[in-house]
Amino acid sequence: MADLKENASQTAGPYVHIGCMPQTAGLKRRNMSALLGEVMVSDDTDAITLDIAVLDGDGVPIKDGLIEIWQAAPDGSYAPSKDFAHWGRQVTDMETGQARFTTVKPGAAKGQAPHILIWIAARGINLALTSRIYFPDEDNKLDPIFRAAEARAATLIAAQTKTGYAHTIHLQGPKETVFFDV
């Protein structure tokens, strides 16, 4: 029954900030309640930074995008916890294009290598893009989804930084990131 098909997706447009991270749009938040998704960890002790940039076909960082991540806790579990939100979101900075998450490194879930789901919505993206971030210091070859990316699997691996990891998403070109239909 066509009436019970999923709603068609539409782009988030350039003003996605207003609805999802209103403080970044310049809203003074008069009478608006708490922000959602900005803080993932209650205690920074074991936190890592995860820096993400999304480059368009010209290699230019997109500066009007929304990025969400969803990941297991260090024990590999998705069970709700007071200390860790599993879910976070940030916008790509309007000046630099960088998005920074403060999170913890996920543990391995059954049969998979540690990974973070990344979801990207922005102007010019008609159906939000889903990918995964894997880590350079893990045995990713045992992970069936990583392996499914075959020759392009390297596009899913973040780079180590002093305080955590950095990952660049390429929307197009020879280094185009693997995006999933899940």
């Binding site: 997109i62 010019g124 993206i125 929307l171 197009q172 185009e176 995006f179 239909d181």
Partner: peptide, 10 residues
């Protein structure tokens, strides 16, 4: 400039 050119990987 923002549309991936490869098919989504199922």
């Amino acid at each position: 400039l923002r549309a991936p050119q490869q098919k989504l990987l199922h």
